[in-house]
């Protein structure tokens, strides 16, 4: 199995706080890899590390064998043409219509005629169910619609690698089903590699080929959906069942609540 991305003994810190402590993971080419973990654990950070927006403290991140932190700015921009990222906030350009947002990467990086761009944009919008919203401004969209528009933009160029940061958040069951199918189809038909960050355990188990679960600066579990379901790790089981009590802490690190409230 060929790996598109390899992360090797990577450590990353925000100020004094260690976000990742010496983790290693691989993302296989042409597969869907899911990243799960409690809120605030650093999933978005991981995607930004892969995209070269943040630099690890130590260790290496390789894209097709080439070290991302070691790239020059120019080289990084060349490599980024083969990836795209769906931001957690959507990050649509607020001064353009939905249509122009999705046409943006096509206009920047291809020499296609406006006529073909129009067809491609409308097809992407159709795929996420927003063809009717093409002429709206991003401020006129609901949260879930904005995210679907952003998704359409991130797949506009059919990049080799797509990093989805919580694509399903804020979607109703119907659009959720459509998006799950869309991501799966992109993978199967175009052989794209997807990295999906999500909290939706059931969706993950249906679309992911491989799953990593992060907690406490480490990877606490990894494997195919079958292996994850059958994992005997109490950490993994707690996470899948969504229990507050267990080895995975729900709280941001803090002193004990008795201590803080009673001021002792």
């Amino acid at each position: 199995m060929e790996n598109l991305i390899e992360i090797e003994s990577m450590t990353f810190k925000r100020g004094q706080r260690v976000i990742y402590d010496n983790i290693s993971l691989q993302i296989a080419k042409g597969k869907t890899t899911a990243i799960m973990g409690p809120s605030g654990i650093g999933k978005t950070t991981l995607l930004k590390l892969i995209g070269g927006q943040l630099r690890p403290e130590s260790g290496d991140i390789r894209f097709r064998g080439e070290s991302i932190p070691g790239m020059t700015r120019n080289r990084l921009f060349t490599v980024r043409r083969q990836m795209s990222m769906l931001f957690q906030s959507g990050a649509l350009f607020t001064d353009m219509t939905v249509f122009d947002n999705i046409a943006f990467p096509l206009r920047e990086h291809t020499r296609l005629s406006e006529k073909i761009i129009r067809i491609m944009v409308l097809m992407k919008l159709q795929a996420v169910g927003l063809r009717g919203a093409a002429d709206l401004m991003p401020s006129e969209l609901s949260g879930g619609m904005a995210r679907r528009a952003a998704l359409a933009r991130s797949i506009a160029l059919d990049p080799e690698l797509i990093l989805y940061d919580e694509p399903f958040a804020g979607q109703d069951p119907i659009s959720m089903g459509v998006l799950v199918k869309l991501i799966k189809e992109l993978n199967d038909a175009l052989n794209l590699t997807s990295v999906v960050v999500t909290h939706d355990v059931t969706e993950v188990l249906t679309i992911a080929d491989y799953i990593y679960i992060l907690a406490e600066q480490k990877i606490i579990g990894s494997g195919t959906p079958e292996q994850i379901k059958q994992s005997d790790s109490p950490l993994v089981q707690q996470f899948l069942r969504g229990e507050a009590d267990g080895p995975v802490p729900f709280h941001f690190p803090a002193q004990s609540i008795e201590h803080e409230l009673l001021g002792a």
């Binding site: 995209g51 927006q53 060349t78 990836m83 795209s84 931001f87």
Partner: peptide, 17 residues
């Protein structure tokens, strides 16, 4: 505001400086 709403990051990720 473009920075705060990640529009600048998202340009960078689209390989647009």
């Amino acid at each position: 505001l473009m920075k705060a709403t990640e529009q600048l990051s998202s340009l960078e990720m689209m390989a647009v400086d």
